[in-house]
Design a protein around this nucleic acid. Sequence first.
DNA 1: TTGAAAGCGCTAACAT
DNA 2: ATGTTAGCGCTTTCAA
Lengths: 338, 338
Amino acid sequence: MKQYKAENEKNLTISDIARELGVSKTTVSRAISGKGRIGEATRKRVREYIEVHNYRPNVIAKSLAQSKTFNIGVVLPSDTKQTEIPFFQSCLMGICDVAAGFEYDVVVITATENDIKLIERLIRNHKVDGIVLTRPTVNDMAIAYLKQTGIPFVIIGSVEDESIIQIDNHHIGGCCELTSVLLKLGYENIAFLSGSKYHIVNNNRYKGFKQAFDEQEKDIDERLVFLDFISYVQIDRAVELIMQQKPECIVCSDDVICSRLLIKLNELGYSVPKDIKVASFYDSIHLANYNPPITSLKIDIRALGIQAGKVLISLINGGEVSHQTLLDYEIVLKKSTM
Amino acid sequence: MKQYKAENEKNLTISDIARELGVSKTTVSRAISGKGRIGEATRKRVREYIEVHNYRPNVIAKSLAQSKTFNIGVVLPSDTKQTEIPFFQSCLMGICDVAAGFEYDVVVITATENDIKLIERLIRNHKVDGIVLTRPTVNDMAIAYLKQTGIPFVIIGSVEDESIIQIDNHHIGGCCELTSVLLKLGYENIAFLSGSKYHIVNNNRYKGFKQAFDEQEKDIDERLVFLDFISYVQIDRAVELIMQQKPECIVCSDDVICSRLLIKLNELGYSVPKDIKVASFYDSIHLANYNPPITSLKIDIRALGIQAGKVLISLINGGEVSHQTLLDYEIVLKKSTM
DNA sequence: TTGAAAGCGCTAACAT
DNA sequence: ATGTTAGCGCTTTCAA
C-alpha cells in the first residue's frame, strides 16, 4: 500500500498553504477557485505561493466534496471486428481533445450489444459525470439503461427517441445526395451493399439511397440490394450475385465493405471503373490510398467526437443543448465513378 | 451543481447500512473488504443487506481514504496519422479487458513526442495509479518524466534502459527469422523499406533484418535500404528507386508502408509475386485481405495490451515483475513471396 | 470480534 | 473580506 509519492516530498495540501500563509483553508480554496469574494492582495499571495511551491490540488478530494469526478466515460464496442476500424479511434481522439480543454479526463470502457456490465459498473462506481455512447444499435440496451439512471449522456449516431441527445453526420442527406449524383451521371442500375441492419447508421444510409431514387422517380432494382451482409464470406458472395446482374455501379454503406468489395472485384477480374463503377458512403484510411481513388462521402470523424464532447460537458454543467446536432459531409467524386 | 442522483433514491452509504443493522461503520467496511477479523454471522448479515439493497461503495471516497484511484492511464499518440492505424486501438482494448478484470478503469490521454502536458496533468491530478506508454521513441520525454515521478509505469515497446518495464514482441528475432526464410528461398537482393527512425521499433526491425544477413554471411545491398521514409510521397519515391535496382523482394517494416507500396507497385505496373516478391514485418487489417495474400510477421496486438495491463497492475500492487516481457510472433508465408 | 474516532483534502453554508 | 465548522464516504489505527 506504500505509494510512490513517499519518494518525493510529501504533497502540499490546502491546509499546508493556509498554515504557512497564516490564513484559513477557505481563503486558499477561494483564491484557487475564484469563487466567493476575496481580497486582491491575499489572492495574489496565495497564487504566488502556489506557483512557487508547485502546488496541485487533489482532484479526488475535490471530487468527493463536490460529487463530481471531472471524468467522462466513452463506450466503445469491444468486438474485435469493429475494433480495427479507425472510426472509433478517431472519435475517441476528438473527445479526448475537448475533454482536456475543459480539464476533464476520458475513461474508456467497452460494451457489446448484449453486455453492458461495464457501463453499469462505471456508473455505480461514480467514476464519471457523463457518458458518450458510440454506434447505437436497434433496441440499444445501453441507451435504455443510461436513460433510466438519469446520468447525462450523448450518443454519436442517431435514434428515433428525441429525448436523447444525438450527434451525427447527416447520413440520410449525404447518401441521398451522393446517390442522386450517381443517377444523374446516368448510372441507372446501382447496386447497394450494406452491413449489419442492427446498426442504425446502415439503415439511415439505405434510407438516403432510396430517397434519391424516389426524388428522381426511378425504381430501385431489388435484386441489386444486399442488406445485412456482415462477414467477408457473405460480402464475397454478395459481390458475385451482384455482378451476375451486370449493374453499372455499386454503392457500399461503408469503407470496410467497400475495401472488401474492391478486392473481390479484382479477384473476379473486373476493373474499376472500366467494368464497374464503385462508390462508398464513408471513406477512411482503408480507401484513402486505393487506386483508382474511390468516390465517397467524406465525413470528419474527429469533429464528431469533438462535438459530442462539447455537448456532453455542456450538458453536465447544466447547459441547454439541442437534442440533435447534424454535422456536415462532403461528396468527393473520384475516378472510380468516371 | 445539482446532480442527477437527486432523481433516484439517495445513494446508500456505509453509515446508512451501519445504522440500519445496528453495527458500526467499521464493521460494515470490514464485511465488505474482507480485511480484519469479523464474525461470520455479522459478515453474512451485512452482505445480505448489501445484496438486497443494491449497495455500491463510492469509489471516490475509497480513493481519497486510500490514496489510490483504481485507474490506469494509457498514453496514445495524438498525431492523426498514427491515429488511424489499428495498433493502438487493439492495444487499448487489451488493456481495457484486463483492467476491467481487476476492477480498474482506463483513462486515455494523448501525447506527442514533444508535448507531454497531458501526462503531467494526469499525474499531478492524482487521477491514475499507474501508466501504460505506447510506442517509445528515441529520447522519449514521457519516459524520462515518468521515471522521475516514480509512478509505476510500463511501456509497450522496447528501450535500452533496463530499469524500465517493457512489454514487446520479439521484433529483432522475428524480423531476423522472416528475413532468413526469404534468403533461404533464394531471394538474394532484398530491399528494405522502413518508417520513422524515431520509433525504436523500426530500428529493431532493421536490426533483425541485418542479423539475418550476418548469420548467413551475406551482404546487404545498401542501395536497397530505405530507412526513415514517412510520408506517402517519400514512400512512392523510394519504391521507384528500389525498382530501378530490380531486386527480387521488398520487405516493409510495417503494414501501412506495405499497403502503400502495393498500391504504388500496382500503379507502376508490377505484379506481385510475379515481378517482385513482397513481405511485411507486421500485418494488420490493412493487409489481411489483400490479394495476393502478403507474407508477414503476425503479432497479437491485443495480447500485448493484455500483458501490459497485467504487469502494470501487478506493479501497482507491489508485485515483482520482470523488466522485459517478449511476446511471440508467427511467420506466415503467403502467395506474395512464392 | 467489534466500535469510536481521526483523517484523506477539499468545498460550502453560515458566521463574523 | 475572511474564518469556523461541518461535511463528502470511506479506511484505519487504537482501544475495548
